[in-house]
Design a binder for these strands. Sequence first.
DNA 1: ACAATTATTGACAGCGCTACCATCGGATTG
DNA 2: CAATCCGATGGTAGCGCTGTCAATAATTGT
Lengths: 343, 343
Amino acid sequence: MGRKTTKSGKIRLTEVAKLAGVSPITASRFFRNPEALSLSKRERVDSAVKELGYVPNLAARALASHRTEVIGVVIPSLTNNVFADVLRGIYDSSEGSRYSIQLANTRYSILQEEKLLQLFRAQKPAGLIVTGINQTAESRAILESMNCPVTQIMEIGDAPVDMMVGFSHYDASFAAISHILAQGRRRIGFLGARMDPRVQRRLDGYRDAMKAASMFDASLIVTTSVPTTVTLGGTLFADLLAQAPDIDAVFCVNDDLALGVLFECQRRQLSVPRDVAIVGFNDLEFMASAVPSLTSVRTNRYEMGRHAVTMVIDAIEGRRPQEPVLDLGFQLMVRESSVPPNT
Amino acid sequence: MGRKTTKSGKIRLTEVAKLAGVSPITASRFFRNPEALSLSKRERVDSAVKELGYVPNLAARALASHRTEVIGVVIPSLTNNVFADVLRGIYDSSEGSRYSIQLANTRYSILQEEKLLQLFRAQKPAGLIVTGINQTAESRAILESMNCPVTQIMEIGDAPVDMMVGFSHYDASFAAISHILAQGRRRIGFLGARMDPRVQRRLDGYRDAMKAASMFDASLIVTTSVPTTVTLGGTLFADLLAQAPDIDAVFCVNDDLALGVLFECQRRQLSVPRDVAIVGFNDLEFMASAVPSLTSVRTNRYEMGRHAVTMVIDAIEGRRPQEPVLDLGFQLMVRESSVPPNT
DNA sequence: ACAATTATTGACAGCGCTACCATCGGATTG
DNA sequence: CAATCCGATGGTAGCGCTGTCAATAATTGT
């Protein structure tokens, strides 16, 4: 009579309920709201589940409950190291919870984002994490109509769809430029690639900081919509030198560009930081180990992912945060590339 | 009477069928096997779907059909650039298909992998992509019992669970070492971190190439189980120099380590390649742009992702490949860091 | 021209679970 | 002590779709 088979046969909730001597609905509640069961039944169901090796059928659950346990994540890039860290935070935080992550990649296209959100809407996710605050009106309408918690990540702003976790790219950039100015540099170039909204705000911070110091000059700015690479950093730097040969510092919107600039300086026998100071953005791991070590703005990417998931899950389960906008800030990591060579 | 509401109300397949004047099952077939419908009905259903803005309920579909349209992907790391490229290929190829990707991260733990595979088994995915060929016996048993196409990626071997796409890490490493030896270098150090199975095979290739040239010396090898970073490359190189001061070349199991070695050489005023040749692995983008440019082994990561998905989808739909093992090979990208300075 | 075959189509039942409400003791209250 | 309430439990009905198989229409061969 040993039909307590672990074989992936027909173990449904009904079987569990039978073994535990309760009704199926009680067994169902064991998973969704165990506190509602009396201790004795809870234990009986628990051991029945274990004995039978029961695994819930998620499709049936979703169909019957009109809900899923999926958190959708919309990011613009899979190759950008920045998002790799965010994703790691997201996956780390979602493990152990009942929710699973469904990833979607917009490739920096807001139209693609709109399509992906439509897809998500059809799936009725339990929660959603989207990148940035520059959705199209249509995307925003979808998000607002979704009837599930939404967290916008990577930056913060005034009008969250629901919740936000990020930092001010404008402030971070402003702080970086202020630091460079404080080192006595006057002709600070700006190098930007793949000018997404967050990079635009870094440019705004640069512009305002330069204007505040009466150092602004449009010919110090070189940008392109091309995706970032290290090689591109060198190219942009060459362009910058061509149009403003007297620069004494470069602010790069990300660390890959900064590394490219460093290599280009080596190629041109320019001394860093004597001839040119270099400051990057994101503080990827290699920045500390370059020669000279490179100054950068550290952002809390992993934590951003963790918080985003936690906020969404908490909101799904009714624990809404006091404050919907969470500012994770940034830190300027001052290194050799931006301070006087002989301090 | 204009109840052709686009409002996300109650548009089920039944409504579509009614509007199209067919039975629900015919409407259902429109999605799963449109060729089976007569042209007239196909068009009627098609326009009904569009008019009503019908979106299939995936949960109901999964419940009724005992299948999902999910392809599970098991990778060991989210931060490793190598997998970022593979993932990009996977997501790019899955877009436009009916299948969605479910990602899971083992963090290089084969026990974690086992757990994740158990989870996947419960969800009955349509297909599975797993990293490497070193699953536990238990994992392998799960994979074989899953009754869905499985593709192992990143490397190739003799006994595929089902299909494979990758390349020989042993051969790639052997080729790299042969190249360095051909440049007249004799004391070639080996730097390895996070010694996962694929890195181990690179070590095997190194060892055999060195032995074949009668140049093998265990004191030339420095490895650690710590995860790779650029900084670690410098540290390992320092260790190597300490235990074998006479080295004239370094082979690094990945490009991050190689970059770290380059920086460490700059710090120690060692000339590359005159004093030390450097060769990396993977050919990340920055290798070409470093000063000097760094030799590396190019691997077709993006293509690996693309092929893996294509193979799985084809197999799901009954188009099994002639040859279950696909070798994508590698290319040695010879650059300044490994050739004589004055050629 | 007629049986045999093949392409289309539909009826029925049910996938495994949970929403909704009903039930039923027992505790609380005036 | 009856009226009320509450926590714990169960019964009934589907959720929206598709597998199975039978029924019908179209096609073909001889």
